[in-house]
């Protein structure tokens, strides 16, 4: 029988799966796929892509009542055509893991513990600190010699006291905004894990 896996899922989820199974004379693996189809009945599908290595394997997320009920290789994706590695196949566990951080946390100087804080407090602390550091460390000009050996004072308008690090785990749009924000704040310490 030559039905694509995706087509098969739709067929199997059609309500007459039991009858179809018998009629089509399916083997055990196809029967298992049929059972899975029933489990996903009514689930909404969202296409996404894995977040481990740089292959970019496609995935399909199945969502029922706002809950992630399944995450698997996307059979119609041009890189992996449904397959996933051991890490990618384990990905569903990351969404609802109890280990996830669920609220902003703060650790005070010298403290040995985290305290949960509100987003408003977190934003407030960060924005105030960004401003304070800029005010305290601003470099308006840099003195140097030009190519003829003459002393010049170049306008540089920067701070070397703020660092932004990260991005390879994020979307292009997040990276773009992270970089743009860093440069607008005046820092050149904008980097990510390109070397890892």
């Amino acid at each position: 029988m030559n039905v694509s896996r995706r087509g098969w899922l739709k067929l199997a989820a059609g309500g007459t799966a039991g009858l179809a199974l018998a009629e089509l004379g399916l083997g055990p693996s196809e029967a298992r796929a049929a059972t899975k189809g029933l489990k996903l009945e009514g689930a909404k599908e969202f296409t996404t892509a894995c977040n481990f290595c740089s292959c970019g394997c496609g995935m399909v997320a199945h969502v029922k009542d706002g809950q992630l009920v399944n995450l698997e290789g996307d059979p119609d994706h041009v890189i992996n055509f449904g397959a996933l590695c051991s890490k990618g196949a384990a990905m569903k566990a990351t969404h609802d893991s109890p280990q996830r951080v669920r609220a902003p946390r703060y650790r005070a100087p010298g403290s040995d513990r985290w305290v949960e804080i509100s987003w408003d407090e977190a934003y407030e602390k960060l924005a105030a600190k960004l401003k304070a550091v800029r005010e305290a460390t601003w470099t308006a000009t840099e003195k140097d010699q030009d190519k003829d050996g003459k002393e010049v004072e170049y306008p540089v308008n920067r701070t070397d006291a703020i660092g932004l690090l990260g991005g390879a785990q994020h979307t292009n749009e997040e990276c773009y905004v992270f970089n743009k924000m860093g440069r607008l704040f005046g820092t050149s310490f904008v980097e990510h894990q390109a070397r890892l």
Partner: peptide
Amino acid sequence: EPNVQGACDMSV
């Protein structure tokens, strides 16, 4: 990494 290419493209 999943988007190390993109992060470089975006000049991070």
